[in-house]
Each structure stands twice: as C-alpha cells, then as structure tokens.
Design a protein around this nucleic acid. Structure first.
Lengths: 102, 102
DNA sequence: TGTTAATATGTCAGATATGACATATTATTT
DNA sequence: AAATAATATGTCATATCTGACATATTAACA
C-alpha cells in the first residue's frame, strides 16, 4: 500500500496495521477495506437509482440517517453485515452483490 | 419460507422473524442467511483444498478452533465480516468471494 | 477394542458494532 | 441572501460478536 493511501485511510478513521506487521497484513487488509468500500459505493448507487433520501433509506433498513451516512462514507464503524443487509433491504440480489465485489 | 426450513434454522440457533413480520422479512432474511451459508461452505472448501485442520486455520486467522468450527457450521454468532476476513486470510480473492455468493 | 486426533457445542468476559441523538456542514429552493 | 432540506460528524448506552476455554462428540487408526 502506498503511504499516501494509508494516510488517507487513517485520516478517515481506519486503524491500519502497525509498521511491524505492515507487510504481513497489508494485502488481505486492503482487500477487506476495498471490499467494504465497494459495498458502500453500491449502496449509494442503489439509493440514487431509487431517488431516496438517507432518511428514507434509514426507515427501510430500520436504522438512523447518521448510520446510513456512515455506511456510504465507508466509516470503519460499520460492518459488512450491515452493508449487505441494507443492500438486500433496498432490493439488491445476491448477484448484484457479487457483481459489486468482484 | 417453508415451515420445515424455518424450524431447521431455528434449531440451529437462528432467530427468525416473528410471525407478525414473517412475510415482510422472510425474503431478505433468507437471502442473508443463504449468503452466510455460502461463505461458510466456501471456507470449508478452502480448508479442505489446503488440507488444513481447524486448529491450523485458527492459527492463520488468529482465532480459536471452536470459532472456526462455528464458522463452518454457519452458526448465527458469526458475522459475515469474520467469514470474509477468514477467507481472505486463506488466500481467497475477491473474485472467489463473488463466485461463492453469486 | 482402546487410544488419539479432529471437530462440535456451551459458556462467558471483553471487544466491537449498533441505533439514536445532537449538532455541524453542505446543497437546494425561494 | 435567507430558509429549508439533505448529508456529515461526534458521542454514547446497549446489543451483538469475539477469542478463549472446557468439555462433548465423532473419526481415524493401531
């Protein structure tokens, strides 16, 4: 991972592995983060396509507007579980999910 | 969802939606569960292919044998996050994941 | 068969994610 | 520009997930 990219992620609140295990973790760690960002992006896409506000999505998904914002922002406090549950709630199919993360 | 299937899932420890929102939730709920089971299955596949014991996988993934067993069993206490992190740790690519859940 | 390795199941204290709220920032509309 | 809607950010109590441990069950094999 480039240092610039790492800083960018850290700035967003990601705790990237310490220098010690930098090389060990970076590959799967970055794969995991990119996966999450793909789902975030896909969620935003689905919302746009349906022309819904974050509040409306929050209703559908049974969460709050602020958490929807965090989901779309790829905040480290949101789990892949929540992203996937939300996408399914918005009508995404498993094939949609597969396409998003491939 | 068939009642028989629901009972089977409940027997495994899944809390399936109450009767009230049965129809509402069942579709995305079952999609979510099936997704998780797909990943569980994929994890077991990866382990088999590498001929590793659950203890060895636990070392690699930095967890315990019992949690690996639960992951493979599709236990409701394991998150999709953990399944995905584990798969990545075993060398799965994002395309592998996409294929698993499609 | 008895011994041993592998996997499964139950439990729990600590760690992480969650919804909700307040409030800040940024678009959009009048 | 002012008002209003939409989105973003910070925080926190509660809920859920986690690794670890003990122990049960099952598989493999001498």
């Amino acid at each position: 991972m480039k240092v610039t990219k790492q800083k960018k992620l850290e700035a967003k609140g990601w705790k990237v592995g310490s220098v010690t295990d930098f090389l060990d973790l970076s590959e799967e760690e970055s794969a995991y983060i990119e996966l999450k960002l793909s789902l975030s992006h896909s969620l935003k896409e689905h919302r746009s396509k349906k022309k819904l506000s974050q509040i409306e999505v929050a209703k559908i998904v049974k969460t709050s507007q602020s958490r929807v914002a965090k989901m779309e922002a790829g905040d480290p406090s949101v789990s892949i579980d929540l992203l996937i549950k939300s996408l399914l709630a918005l009508g995404a199919s498993s094939k949609d999910l597969a396409k998003a993360i491939a």
